[in-house]
Every structure is written in C-alpha cells, then in structure tokens.
Amino acid sequence: MFNFFSDSSRKRRYPNPNRGSSHYQKGGFFGMGSSFSRSGSSSPRRQYGYQPYPRQGQHYGMPQQNQGYAASQSGSCICPNCGASVPAGSKFCLSCGAKMASAAFCPNCGKPVPQGAKFCPECGSPTGR
C-alpha cells in the first residue's frame, strides 16, 4: 500500500529552521516550500473518462477495491442508505453522503469510538453510552 507518510516525507514537513529573508519574503511558487511544489501533472482529461470514485452500492472501505480507507483500529459501520462501509466517527457516508447518526467520539481523548462501544479503545474512558 502507498505509504503516505514515509520517513522522508515526515522530515520534509518540518520547516527548515535556518532560513532567512530570502525565504520568508518570497511569496511565489518556489518561496512557499509547501506541498504545491510536489504537485505533478494529473492529466485530468484522461482521468475523467471513468469513475474513480466509489459509487452507491459499492463498499467504499473495502481494501480489495483499492478505493476506500484501510480498516482502522477503531472499526467501521455500515451505511443504512447504500450499504457501504463507513469509518468510525465520520458524520457522513463517504460513498453516498448520507448522514450517519452513529458517529461518536471519546469525550476524554477525542478519538472516534466504534458503534456501541462503552469504553474508548484508545484511552479506556467511558463513552457515556
């Protein structure tokens, strides 16, 4: 699987601590040192010819489709509208956009908790359910 945060990319996200006016007073494309410099050609016309997004009826989160999220430790739930797998905590189904009533977060640490969980799997605090 594509590692979005390789070691090198993590290091690159920390700003260089030794820069001066030649950097901070240059506002253009090359002066920002931001992710813009990493944007590549996306050839949009070729890519709009098919549907790269999960559609209703597809399971957004199934890894074998290489489209959704990887199964997280916090689990997921099923969208009652389209049946797609929705990551725990998301207020909306990421496939059809339906509002998810089951989204919940730990009142202590703020991380998402699985549907029906009485205790946060991260910090162990009661979820109040």
Binding site: F2, G68, K91, F92, L94
Partner: peptide, 14 residues
C-alpha cells in the same frame, strides 16, 4: 492515497 482518504472526514467530524 486510498488508505488515508478518510482521515480528514473523520477528524473534522469530531
């Protein structure tokens, strides 16, 4: 980024 697309949605939801 198929493995990380959900992060923004989940984090902003909370």
């Amino acid at each position: 980024n198929s493995g990380g697309n959900h992060h923004e949605a989940v984090i902003l939801s909370g």
